[in-house]
Simulated assay, not measured.
Amino acid sequence: MVASYWETARTGFLAFVGVGLLVLVPLGLLHYWRFGRVEPRRALVLYGLLAYGLVALALIFLPFPSDVSKLCTGDQMLSTVPFQWVTDMRNNMAAYGRSGVGAMVRSSAFLQQLFNVALFVPLGVVLRKAYGRGPFAVVAIGFAISLAVEVVQYTGNLGFYPCPYRIADVDDLISNTGGALLGWMIAPVALVVPTVPDPASSAAPLGTVTVPRRLVGLVADAMVVLVIAKLVLPPDPRWALGVLVLLRVVLPAVAGGMTVGGWLAGYRIRAVDGSRANPLRLAVREILGVTGLLTYATVLSPLIDMVRLDLVVMASITLWTFVLPVFLRDQRGWHERAAGTRAVLLERDRSRLSKQVLRT
């Protein structure tokens, strides 16, 4: 019995891996569009619920019947007697001449109800710990979900099968609801489940220059460099690298943190306190960011010739420049933190944003 549950749970988890990969990008984009960043705790709870839901559905409905013609045998597929499992357990123990607590906890009827309780415990834990729901709400939600499952089972998966292949049992309804309540009771000790912050705390501050906006500026700068390199410079990539340094370090130092791409995307680079960023800060920002990565790839990598080091450098800079900032409220990468800089909106974009806020 335990082995069959484990195999079914494994099937559900594999389904989560497949479905999770399919919905990862859409959900991430939706999350980012709503909050201006991907809030880690919300993302963790969301994917945890997705994994739990798919595993639970697999345990409830799998395996599907292989021979549909054998379903409609006239057996009673609806049990409306509360705690019928207690009678079944006693009859089972009597049939085998067993007694005592040990025999009781090993009986299939007891293990089935224990499983039904355990199945809904995570739901109660998440509803209280992550979303702050009270006991009545948890009981109501657990009862509603369990009732929906029993209805689907009794109707042969909403008519997909001519007859039900799982018994719709009032004891399952009681056990599932009790499991949700038990999860609510033990939720305070569930340290792995984070509390989901409210939307105001989840969102990036108004006027934050997001990672996609900075990517647009970076791509625009790269296009300028490519055009200049194609039309003017020798074919040696180090010349293009020099133009990139001029465009990303020297020009911002002269133009108050502005690059061509930054002007197009509507932001400039400033010191953390909002003052003008000096050339040293701009240089550190670029050395630890994209310009440093391209310098390594163009100049150092051919000399060192170590593929593993190349992968480490590329992965590290990409991670702290573009990936980790997505989860942070201020959207600043580690290269910006080390340099003491941040991107700020241009006046025209701040004015437009203020007008939008007033209209809403």
Rank of each mutant, 00 (worst) to 15 (best):
A338S: 06
V25N: 00
Y267P: 02
G18L: 13
F327P: 02
S351R: 13
G179F: 05
R281L: 07
V357E: 13
P65R: 13
S99L: 01
W334G: 06
V225E: 12
L319M: 08
L30S: 07
N176S: 12
A140N: 00
D67Q: 15
A118P: 03
A253D: 08
T210M: 10
Y154L: 15
P237C: 13
S202K: 04
A109L: 09
A118Q: 03
F13C: 06
Q84F: 11
A229W: 13
F327G: 03
G142E: 09
V225I: 14
P194F: 12
L158N: 08
L280W: 04
V81A: 15
A51D: 06
V272D: 06
A51P: 07
L288G: 00
L345P: 07
L27K: 02
M185I: 14
L233M: 11
L182D: 02
F83G: 01
A255I: 06
R285T: 07
L181F: 15
R213E: 07
W6N: 04
L311S: 05
M258E: 11
Q84V: 11
G266P: 05
F64H: 08
I145D: 04
P164H: 03
L54K: 09
D349Y: 11
W334A: 08
L44H: 10
Y47R: 07
R342D: 05
V344A: 03
L251T: 15
R350G: 02
V25M: 08
R342Q: 11
V245P: 08
S108T: 14
G333Y: 00
P40L: 03
P164N: 08
P199E: 09
V105P: 02
I141M: 06
A343T: 04
G74V: 15
S354F: 03
L346E: 10
A203P: 06
G179I: 12
L158E: 06
P279E: 01
R98H: 10
A94P: 04
H31I: 02
A94F: 00
L215E: 12
I174G: 04
R332Q: 09
V2N: 12
P63K: 09
L46A: 15
A283K: 06
L353G: 00
F120I: 05
P197G: 01
V170W: 13
G333I: 00
R352K: 10
M1K: 01
V152S: 15
D236H: 12
Q356A: 11
M1Y: 10
P63M: 11
S301A: 09
L119D: 05
L282K: 01
N278I: 05
P63N: 12
V19A: 08
L353R: 10
V23P: 05
R166M: 07
E286V: 01
Q113F: 00
P325W: 01
P235C: 10
W320G: 02
G100D: 10
L50P: 10
Q356F: 03
N116D: 02
H335S: 01
I141N: 03
V344M: 09
